[in-house]
Measured scan of single mutants.
Amino acid sequence: GAPPLPPYSAGGREVTMKKGDILTLLNSTNKDWWKVEVNDRQGFVPAAYVKKLDSGTGKELVLALYDYQEK
């Protein structure tokens, strides 16, 4: 199953993602919540729920390892 959710501390809205989604990583300075862009929406997802990909394009991409439903 998915890892436990860290307390929400990102101070911005969250976004929903599905397992297998490829998201653009915008900011990973917060260790628990990373800012991503998905379907032209920006928001935060739990860092433990995604994995960085080596895209080779200069853009940082992450793979959704679990479904996440915004609150």
Rank of each mutant, 00 (worst) to 15 (best):
D21R: 02
D32A: 06
P46D: 01
D40E: 13
N30V: 03
L23Q: 01
V45Q: 00
L63F: 07
Q42K: 10
V15Q: 04
K31R: 10
E37C: 08
N30L: 07
Y68P: 00
L53Q: 04
G12M: 12
M17S: 00
V62R: 00
A10I: 12
L25Y: 02
G11S: 13
A47K: 05
A47G: 04
S28V: 05
D40C: 12
R13K: 14
K52G: 05
K19M: 08
W34R: 00
P4A: 10
Y66S: 04
T57G: 15
T57V: 13
K59A: 13
W34Q: 01
S9D: 09
N39K: 13
A2M: 12
K35R: 11
A47D: 01
A2L: 13
V50T: 04
V38G: 08
V38C: 08
D32Y: 15
S9T: 11
F44W: 14
L25R: 01
K31T: 08
K59N: 12
N39C: 10
A10M: 15
N27D: 15
G11V: 11
D67T: 06
K31Y: 06
W33R: 01
W33H: 01
D32H: 13
R13W: 08
P3C: 06
P4W: 06
G20L: 03
G11C: 14
Y49N: 03
V38P: 00
A2T: 12
P6T: 01
S28R: 07
P6N: 02
V50A: 03
T57W: 11
D67S: 06
L61C: 07
G58L: 11
D32Q: 07
G20S: 02
E60G: 08
Q69R: 10
L26H: 04
A64C: 09
S28L: 04
V36A: 02
Y49R: 05
N27G: 06
N39D: 15
V36K: 00
V38N: 13
G43D: 02
G12I: 09
F44G: 01
K31V: 13
Y8R: 12
G20W: 04
A64Y: 01
R13I: 12
L61H: 07
P3K: 05
L5N: 06
D32C: 08
V15G: 03
L5A: 07
G58A: 12
A48S: 13
N30A: 08
K52F: 09
P4N: 07
G12R: 08
F44L: 05
T57D: 14
L61G: 03
Q69F: 15
Y68I: 03
D54Q: 11
L25A: 02
F44C: 07
R41I: 15
L25Q: 01
L25S: 01
Y49F: 10
G20N: 05
L25G: 00
N39Y: 13
P3M: 06
Y68A: 01
P7F: 05
T24S: 09
K31D: 13
A2G: 10
S9K: 14
G11N: 13
Y8V: 13
A10S: 15
V50H: 00
